[in-house]
């Protein structure tokens, strides 16, 4: 090892890369966890109702459950297609 290796920027260690990646993915997965089990089915059935009137894509409906100061909010977004 030469004296110059102390002067060059160190390559990031793989363990710290691992920790950073884990923190991000775990936080994201925790955010979607804990919603009621019926959500996927609710989404499916809502989609069917909407489709009776408007033709929309599978991913046009987005359901999310948020918790704010002790109450749960069911957030429903339906993107209608442009005419």
């Amino acid at each position: 090892m030469s004296i110059f290796s102390y002067l060059l920027p160190k390559k990031e260690k793989s363990a710290s890369v691992a920790k950073e990646r884990l923190q991000i993915i775990v936080a994201r997965e925790r955010a979607t966890r804990g919603g009621p089990d019926y959500l996927p089915q609710l989404q499916e059935e809502l989609l069917m109702v909407v489709r009776k009137y408007v033709e929309v894509d599978q991913d046009a409906i987005n359901i999310q459950v948020d918790r704010e100061s002790g109450c749960e909010i069911l957030e429903l977004n339906i993107t209608l297609p442009d005419e």
Partner: peptide, 8 residues
């Protein structure tokens, strides 16, 4: 630095 530590 090649493995996650206990603390990590």
């Amino acid at each position: 630095g090649e493995m996650l530590s206990v603390e990590d």
